[in-house]
């Protein structure tokens, strides 16, 4: 790492001579080493899927959720530092609430994401703070239809048809590109999402992981809800089978 020992990587408020902010890049490293998170924007909704790496068998199943709810119709999934993700979720809830209070309607995702981008970006400006060690996939079905965004540690945000962050993002993105996202139903997308998470999981390096799935759309009457247990298990099983025939 060229940055180490140069002294330009000690503060988010210092540029390196070639115009980089190493603290932000380190934050991205945190995300790159974390479990894969993907989001699918399909015909009538959004699917969020997480490869939640479980570091101990003693943990209660379904604890430390990486998929969080922001508003009735907005969900988010974080990759990186879990606690930072929770903090961002709280901030996102506040922003959604403020929008509601001001305009008396449910907030469009774009608005929440832009405001959250501003917040995250502010943590790249000062020597007294550390940039957020998370990338977040936001999903919602709002008045514009299904919407999917990523907010990165730099504070930048883009909209996507299919989004992937974390360890296995490269493989996941290639897989997402193969899909006809605009034609997929929510149910079909759940199976694809589960398959991709299983595909990118590296059995040799990581031991256990738990598949977290949530969706928003016609199936849920516009609410952000966990994918029902039976469907989740079916998708999990099918994904394992597909992997076995694939290899």
């Amino acid at each position: 790492m060229t940055s180490i020992g140069t002294g330009y990587d000690l503060s988010a408020s210092t540029y390196s001579p070639d115009g980089r902010i190493f603290q932000v890049e380190y934050a991205n490293k945190t995300v790159e080493n974390s479990g894969t998170v993907i989001g699918l924007r399909v015909k009538d909704g959004i699917i969020l899927a997480v490869e939640k790496l479980v570091h101990s068998k003693l943990l209660v199943p379904e604890s430390n959720r990486r998929i969080l709810t922001v508003d009735r119709h907005i969900g988010m999934a974080t990759s990186g530092l879990l606690a930072d993700g929770r903090h961002l979720a709280n901030r996102a809830r506040d922003e959604a609430y403020n929008y509601r209070e001001m305009y008396r309607e449910s907030p469009p995702l774009k608005e929440v994401v832009q405001r959250l981008g501003l917040y995250v970006q502010a943590y790249t400006l000062y020597s007294s703070v550390r940039p957020f060690g998370v990338s977040t996939i936001f999903g919602a079905v709002d008045k514009t239809g299904p919407a999917l965004f990523i907010v990165e540690p730099s504070g930048i945000s883009y909209g996507y048809h299919g989004a992937a962050i974390g360890k296995g993002r490269q493989i996941a993105k290639t897989e997402l590109e193969k899909l006809k996202l605009a034609e997929l139903s929510m149910r079909e997308a759940v199976f694809e999402a589960a398959r991709i998470i299983h595909l990118v999981h590296d059995d040799s390096k990581e031991k256990e992981f738990q598949l977290e799935l949530s969706w928003i759309g016609e199936e849920t009457k516009g609410l952000h809800l966990p994918v029902p247990k039976d469907l989740c298990e079916e998708a999990d099983r099918k994904a394992r089978e597909a992997l076995e025939t694939f290899e």
Partner: peptide
Amino acid sequence: LEELIIEEFAEA
């Protein structure tokens, strides 16, 4: 009440 219900919903 709307805000209260959303807060509780977000707890999931």
